[in-house]
């Protein structure tokens, strides 16, 4: 891969790195594991960049590779003891510290979802439509709708 392609790639990732960061936070609990996954995703994006020919949206491509990497790669087993009963009661509307608290609450809630459910809901929350989600995941549009509805209800129950 040449310098021009590398520059284009790095710019694309710089512009979209929040996607990778969110996926890492969603799929891994510790900072160290998130950092490792981040590197794995960037490496896989780089490897698949020559086959990305702007046929799909950049964000679709990044989501597909990032979710695929997060779901497939081997994870070290760890004994994690955490208690989730003490979630804040409500999602607060605004304010920098409060937003951070809301974020924490949301990412903690994701831990109750399976890897598959995380993939579907992350695409939905990013505002991809059913057709786009179906293309990225390989599900049918009908099935996508059913799954999203179930995961939304599950998430609402967790968050209260």
């Amino acid at each position: 891969m040449n310098d021009k392609m590398e520059k284009e790639f790095l710019k694309t990732i710089l512009d979209n790195q929040s996607i990778i960061y969110k996926i890492c936070r969603m799929y891994r609990d510790s900072k160290e594991d998130q950092e490792d996954l981040y590197q794995e995703i960037v490496y896989q994006l780089w490897k698949s960049y020559p086959s990305f020919k702007n046929e799909s949206k950049v964000s679709s491509w990044i989501y597909r590779i990032a979710l695929n990497t997060s779901m497939a790669v081997y994870r070290k087993s760890k004994l994690i003891i955490e208690y989730y009963e003490d979630f804040p009661e409500h999602i607060h509307p605004s304010g920098e510290e409060i937003v951070s608290e809301n974020e924490e609450r949301l990412f903690s809630a994701f831990r109750f979802l399976s890897d598959f459910e995380k993939a579907i809901i992350s695409l939905y929350l990013e505002d991809f439509n059913y057709q786009e989600i179906a293309e990225i995941t390989g599900l049918t549009e009908n099935n996508t709708g059913v799954r999203i509805s179930r995961i939304k209800n599950k998430l609402k129950k967790i968050l209260g």
């Binding site: 590398e6 790639f9 790095l10 990732i13 710089l14 790195q17 929040s18 960061y21 969110k22 936070r25 950092e35 490792d36 981040y38 590197q39 794995e40 960037v42 490496y43 780089w46 999602i91 937003v99 951070s100 809301n102 974020e103 949301l106 990412f107 992350s122 929350l125 990013e126 505002d127 998430l155 968050l159």
Partner: peptide, 28 residues
């Protein structure tokens, strides 16, 4: 929930850090 997801904070990496990540030698 959508708004929290879409506006979630992100640690930004520099171009140099990202470049290092494309090399298998630095892959964890």
């Amino acid at each position: 929930i959508k708004s929290i997801w879409q506006n979630a904070s992100a640690n930004s990496k520099s171009e140099l850090e990202l470049k290092r990540m494309t090399n298998v030698i630095n892959h964890p």
